[in-house]
Design a protein around this nucleic acid. Sequence first.
DNA 1: GACCATACTTAAGGAGGAGTAGGTTGTCAA
DNA 2: TTGACAACCTACTCCTCCTTAAGTATGGTC
Lengths: 197, 197
Amino acid sequence: MIVAAASELFAARGYRGASVEAIARRSGISPPVVYEHFPSKVELYRELLERHFAELRAVWSRNLAGDDPLAERIARSCDAWFAYVEAHPFAARVLFRDGAGDPEIEPVHREVAERSKAAVMRLFVAEPGAENVAGPADAEGLEMAWVVLRGVLQGLAVWWSEHPAVPRERVVAMAMNSLWIGLERVHRGDVWAPSSR
Amino acid sequence: MIVAAASELFAARGYRGASVEAIARRSGISPPVVYEHFPSKVELYRELLERHFAELRAVWSRNLAGDDPLAERIARSCDAWFAYVEAHPFAARVLFRDGAGDPEIEPVHREVAERSKAAVMRLFVAEPGAENVAGPADAEGLEMAWVVLRGVLQGLAVWWSEHPAVPRERVVAMAMNSLWIGLERVHRGDVWAPSSR
DNA sequence: GACCATACTTAAGGAGGAGTAGGTTGTCAA
DNA sequence: TTGACAACCTACTCCTCCTTAAGTATGGTC
């Protein structure tokens, strides 16, 4: 399976470091066969990203749906998120260890990130109480909230992929402590303000 | 000034994308002159990272010192941090847009990150109430807290460098809302626990 | 004026890797 | 047995880019 081998190698060595030759060899084939399945290296990379992103998004939206209190849904989603990371360590590293900085794949990442942002922001907006975070039509504030969310989840995911001995519950608890408690409080209008300095 | 040109180009095109030729030309010289100042491209990169890191660390520890309440010191540090990012947009992008994924510079980043982690963790431990975050000798918990802190600050810094029109106060407020409020509550022992599900 | 150090240049060495051309093996049908 | 076809491989081309070798202008010194 080419995409599996590619995931592992991209995760381990980065986009530049993983040569098409190496990917082919690990798949038990030779480079030209790769080019019969994908038009170019960067397209192979894009395909890979798309797949992982789609799976992750499915996990996320499946768990966020429902009528339970938001706290439970978020906790469930976090848990499912890290379960996915646990089951697909390469996916997480390819998706999150950025790859920004490389001009060739940066547009690909940006595109996927854009769609993820749109998806999350729709959820934020649909949630009652969201206006306390950002104000009713405040796209900037929502975007920053997404940036924070992403920063925390990505950071923990990458860190965890390098410390697999830590039990998942701990990582989930840390994510919830960092995100939910702060967000919940903000949700109630209990914001930190510069004037309090 | 070679390092200035290198910062800009590394920030704009990444480590691989910024050729030594381009860096030299932007400095108004030719490639061999670069090699009279730095033994190799990767060493130039390291030097650059070291400089930015040292400045950022100085900013951070200067503002965290003092006897005022922790909240004020953290707010001040956040503000100074983003002021630095504002003044040195290239530095921020070089430092944070990771570069992980590239096997050549990954060790360099890792080394700098390690020292930053050590510095921040010393601060955490010195703070009364820290045991609520992580327990007395819980290196894992402290490390995760650092990961979260880094994720949020990096994420916001990179995002802000792409949205320079947003006023600094907003970004600082978002950082404080995300980090401080959650941490403060955890500080008091008011943690989210998996059993609450 | 001849010599030399300094600072820089152009141009080439050499490695690594994406993508391709053309040959080779194996399978199936007649 | 033989021909057609598909799948795959080796080996090559082309290109980028780090690094270095060798040469050239400038300014000071005897």
